[in-house]
């Protein structure tokens, strides 16, 4: 809503990415929730899409190595960013290092249609700047406790897609999936929520479909 009567109200619809550049999707969420596993699953499921990945993991070589071992992506299509101990700063307050990484991928691969940016594991308040990504996915896991969606925070409440991962572990950690799903839908005001297990569905079909719709 505009508080200035002399100014027309801003367009509330999402801006389409500038013509010709790759769509940029951020994958954020707490440490160990399954971000890299999801990125690997997406690379596999979207094998027909010209894509690349930027990682912000502190063990930069670790994530790249994981993706290389998974055999889902040419290592030349992975750029690692160092975040100076502040993973949230690198994706939100000062995104220049990540933009640099995206630019260098775009220079190397001119036909790029999708860049997936994995944030370093952080807390529930960490979200991507709209200057860096067009859409963002926030990944939490069942093992973190079924209170997580209820706690909210910008990651859970505002991400374009919330993924509640590792549902296969729910019985082992005593997490109630019904509570998690209910709380998530309540705090997100209609924004989509996916419950998944990468053990049961290694290709993350629901998330891959959501990403495809954004290309």
């Amino acid at each position: 809503m505009s508080f200035d009567p002399t100014v027309a109200e801003a367009d509330r619809h999402d801006q389409a990415p500038a013509a010709g550049r790759a769509v940029r999707i951020g994958v954020g969420g707490p440490v160990g929730s399954g971000k890299t596993a999801l990125v690997a699953a997406l690379c596999r499921a979207l094998a027909d899409v010209d894509l690349a990945v930027v990682t912000n993991d502190i063990y930069t070589t670790e994530d790249a190595e994981f993706l290389r071992r998974a055999g889902v992506l040419d290592p030349a299509r992975i750029e690692a960013v160092r975040t100076g101990c502040c993973p949230h700063t690198a994706i939100r307050d000062d995104i220049t290092a990540n933009l640099d990484a995206v630019d260098s991928l775009a220079e190397r691969f001119p036909g790029l249609r999708l860049v997936i940016i994995e944030s370093g594991g952080d807390n529930l308040t960490a979200v991507f700047s709209r200057g860096l990504v067009d859409h963002q996915i926030f990944v939490v896991d069942v093992a973190g406790g079924d209170k997580v969606p209820r706690k909210g925070g910008p990651g859970v409440t505002t991400a374009d897609l919330l993924v509640i991962n590792k549902t296969d572990l729910a019985p082992l950690v005593g997490a109630d999936l019904g509570v998690m799903s209910g709380d998530a839908h309540r705090v997100r005001n209609g924004l989509p929520v996916v419950l998944q297990s990468l053990v049961d569905t290694p290709d993350a079909p629901a998330v891959a479909g959501w990403v495809r719709d954004r290309l």
């Binding site: 700063t89 690198a90 000062d94 995104i95 220049t96």
Partner: peptide, 12 residues
């Protein structure tokens, strides 16, 4: 230090 010029990832 809040200027988004990439400085926060350098420790000198």
């Amino acid at each position: 230090s809040r200027f988004p010029g990439g400085g926060h990832v350098h420790s000198g």
